[in-house]
Structures are given as C-alpha cells and as structure tokens.
Nucleic acid binder design. Structure first.
Length: 466
RNA sequence: UCCCCAGUAGCUCAGUCGGUAGAGCAAGUGACUGUUAAUCACUGGGUCCGUGGUUCGAGUCCGCGCUGGGGAGCCA
C-alpha cells in the first residue's frame, strides 16, 4: 500500500473509505475509556496534523500505543473515515500502528507538547523543525524560494551560480571571512615577516563572498537578464534581530535597464512572491496571523494590491523636515536615513511600500551610477511598512571614466578591479540590479521578529552550533 | 562594538528584610471521558550559569567571567 502525505489527505485528495498509510511523528496522545486512543501525527507536509483513531483491540495497544509520547515516529495504516468529532473532517481509523522510533526519555525530550520560547528553540535547532512554528516557517521559506525562481525564469532571467569563494576583498560590503588552508598556528612567513599567502591553496588571499553582484554583472553583460540566489557571508560583529553572518540573498542584474526599470522589477518580484505564498501557504499564514503577528496577512495583501510609491531622496528629506515631529537624529540633506526616518516615510506618510531613489553620492557605493547633477547617484531602497529596508539596489556606473574617477575619489585600488573595469571597456551598456535579503523577506511574510528563527541553522557571532 | 536587561526543576517563571527553594506546564501512575493545548488526583524531579569575595550564614549583596535577549551603529 502506498503511503500518503498528510497534506493530500487533509486537502480532500483521498476519498473517505480509502485504505491509507501515513508516516510521521506523534504530537499528542489522548486515551479514552471508550476503547480507543487519539493520536495526532504530523509529517511536515502541511500545518495540520492528522488524527489517528487507535482502537484498544490493536495487538500492541496496551504494550505500545498507550505509551506513545510527543516525538515518537510511527507508521499507521487503516481506513480514512469521516470524523465524528470537532476539529477535523477526516481521521484515520488504524488497523496497524508500527512504532518506527521511540523517544528515549519523554521527560527530557526537548520539544514537549507545550509553548516554547524561540530563544529556547534555538538551543535545540536540530529538533525545533518539529514545532508548529518552525515547521510552518520552513514551508513558507520554501514557497518563497520557489516563487523567486519561478518569477525570474518566467521573466527570461538566467540563474547564474556566482562563486562562494572570492579572490578579491574588494566587493565593498562589510568584513570578510578568510578562506585558507594554511596552518593557523604556525603559518609560512614572507621575508618581511608577514603571512605568505603565496603558499595558500589559491596562491593568494581568498574569502567567502559578501555579494554575487560584481560577478553577476559580468554575466549580465552577455546574457542580458541574470540573477543569483545563494548564501552570502559577512564577518561583522553585529548582534541584532536582523543580521546573520550567513544569509541568503537574491540579486538580479538587468542589461539595458535604468533605475526605473529596476524599481519596476523589484515591485513585480515582491508582488509575485507574496501572491504565491498567500495562495500556497494559507494554512501556515493563518497560524502566523493567529499566534505571531495579527496583521501579517493583510500586510501581504496590501503589498500585492497597492502600487509602490516612488520618491526622490531629496523630496523625502523635505517631507521629513516638515513632518512636525522631532527625530532622535535630526534630518538634513546628505545624511543617510535612520530607521526612524524610513519608518515614518513608509508607515506614516505613504502607508504602503515606498521606493526611495537618487541618494547623495557620498553615502553610497562606488559602483552606483552618478546622476547628471553630480551629487547624487542612481540608488534605490525599497522600504516596507513594518520592517524598513527590504531591498537595496542601483543603476550601475557603466562609463569607465566616471567609474575610475569614483575609485580614485574613494582611494580604491584600480588594479584590483581590472576585470570589473574591463566590462566598461568592451561593449559597456547601462544596467541595473538590486539585492533582496531572503531572511528579511521571510521575516516580513511570517511576522517573525528575529531572522535567526527563519533560517534553519543560524550563524551569528559566537554561535555556529549544529 | 556600545548601552540596558536577564540566567532558579525538562520548559516558562515566582522567590519579600540575607536564614539551605515554590507554582504552572511537561513527565510518571491512577480516575474519568469521541477526545482535540481535555479534565481531576497523586508522585518523582534542583551543581539556584561559573568563579572569587563580604557574612555566623548567600538563590538573594559586591567583583570578574560566560551565555542569552532587547536597543543602537552597520547593513541585506
């Protein structure tokens, strides 16, 4: 007999009266003197567990079934029947319950059938996917990742696998993790006494990537529309609910595109993936709305339905100056916006997602295209109510002379960027792209307040267990 | 990295004035019941984060360290 996913059974794909087999883990057991036990089993295929009716005449009823506890693995076969109780439409009347794996010591099983704090669950990261919350997050994360791939594929974008190990420390974003096979205790030395990286695996210093953007630009200027989607690494000692040392990022790059096309793409992407998760994971979202964040569903629907506001940085500064409220950081043209400013703009002023564009040159990266005014660059941030910056991007500087001037201005080493400069020497075209932090997106969708709970095994300063 | 807060039973927490520890949930046993975060009774369960100090006596007060959380900065 074939096994069934609980999702298939609960969604009505299996007719009542069918023989079925399910495999999964016990969540709760309740015994009844009426001659049966109720055992709820989940297999991760959907939010809800399946209720198993275990009649007392099962051969192993007294010896095994009444000793089932949370976490036990079981294989159950029987007949799917209409439920006479409330809370479910169908249930499985078992004619056989095989205990595949017992729980050693139920008292110390870390996932007791009760409420747990997320802080505690992080200390049992290998078992926490068995909880309602973390299971739901895993399914939502998958749904979003699949939607991202589908969106770009349908739009004609090519998924480019940019390298994890990078040879340059010049990607311009944050501290790097070194990749080395040298003996850390007693490394080879140069004549001057420094570490001799000539003898390292790659013959020079290497690091984990902090962004696939520069590599993606190379493929963009050949395949026109490309994106990367993979892990990135930042060795910054930042301890917040929005930062991880290892996180996933989506980075599209489009040739012959300007900043406005870039903003259009960002808006279309967010709407597409939010619509997908609303359709595919209604069960999990209902749980988040009930237990985690009451507004999470309406927030998604708002993003899907409302056009994003577009606004220049300079106009945003004017609005903030006239906001009639005192900010902790007083606003003036030229400064980077603080989260309090972003929050005011997105939540109070426009009340829906907002694309801020054309920031002062001095506060943005070297690769962003200098505007005709000479003091701003074609950068954009997408600000979402409730979370702040979710996307950062720009039109790239495609003019070699302007790029060189910027490198010089920032006292950066031109030689280190020889291949990146080549792209401006051979058939350069206007192009643009952005980065979407995947964990922040999952946080936004689920209402989870800490990105450590939306990635399976979080890596943060002083923490890389499991 | 900076500023605040916390660390006591498997989990979430209480613990007054410094006098060797308590609740709820979970677990075990039993009662009851087509139950559904079931209910009721009973039972077991403690290196009070570590370390040094003050004291006749420290979960409690003080120093140092470790761990976790929140906020800030930086960003995605």
């Amino acid at each position: 007999m074939a096994t069934h996913a609980i999702s298939a059974i609960l969604s009505g794909q299996v007719p009542v009266g069918s023989p079925v087999v399910v495999q999964g883990w016990v969540r709760t057991r309740r015994d009844s003197k009426a001659g049966l036990s109720f055992v709820t089993v989940h297999d991760g295929s959907c939010f809800d567990p399946l209720q198993i009716i275990a009649p007392a005449d099962l051969p192993n009823y007294a010896s095994e079934v009444v000793h089932l506890t949370a976490g036990c693995a079981v294989r159950v076969s029987g007949e799917l029947v209409a439920s006479t109780g409330k809370g479910q439409t169908v249930e499985l009347r078992a004619d056989r319950i095989e205990v595949v794996g017992w729980v050693d010591d139920p008292e110390t099983y870390p996932i007791a059938p009760k409420a747990h704090s997320f802080e505690y669950l992080r200390t049992v990261a290998h078992l926490r996917p068995r909880t309602n919350s973390i299971g739901a997050i895993a399914r939502v994360r998958h749904s979003l990742a699949q939607a991202i791939q589908r969106f770009f594929h349908e739009q004609g974008y090519c998924w480019v696998h940019t390298p994890i190990i990078t040879g340059s420390d010049c990607e311009g974003a944050g501290a790097l993790f070194r990749v080395s096979t040298l003996d850390a205790v007693n490394p080879p030395r140069t004549a001057e006494g420094g570490i001799d990286f000539d003898q390292d695996f790659f013959g020079h210093e290497t690091f984990l990537t902090v962004s696939g953007q520069l590599n993606a630009e190379a493929y963009c200027l050949a395949l026109s529309k490309v994106y990367t989607f993979g892990p990135t690494f930042r060795a910054e000692n930042s301890n917040t609910s929005r930062h991880l040392a290892e996180f996933w990022m989506v980075e599209p790059e489009t040739a012959f595109a300007d900043l406005h096309a870039n903003a259009d793409l960002a808006e279309a992407l967010l709407k597409f993936i939010f619509r997908a998760v609303l359709e595919e994971r209604a069960d999990d979202l209902a749980f988040f709305a009930q237990r985690i964040d009451k507004t999470c569903i309406q927030r998604l629907e708002q993003v899907v339905n409302a056009p994003f506001e577009r606004m220049d940085y300079s106009e945003a500064v004017r609005i903030l100056e006239q906001a009639g409220r005192t900010f902790e950081f007083p606003i003036h043209w030229g400064m980077d916006l603080q989260s309090e400013h972003e929050r005011y703009l997105a939540e109070d002023h426009v009340g829906r997602p907002l694309v801020l564009m054309n920031y002062p040159k001095a506060i943005k990266s070297f690769y962003m295209r200098v505007n005709d005014d000479g003091r701003t660059v074609a950068a954009m941030d997408v600000l979402a109510p409730g979370i702040g910056e979710i996307i950062g991007g720009s039109q790239r500087e495609e003019r070699l002379d302007v790029l060189d001037a910027r490198l010089e201005e920032l006292k950066m080493d031109k030689n280190a960027y020889h291949w990146y400069r080549d792209l401006r020497r051979y058939g350069s075209v206007p192009h643009a792209g952005f980065g979407l932090g995947f964990e922040r997106t999952v946080s936004y969708v689920t209402g989870m307040s800490n990105v450590r709970d939306v990635i399976p095994f979080p890596r943060t300063p002083r923490s890389a267990d499991f």
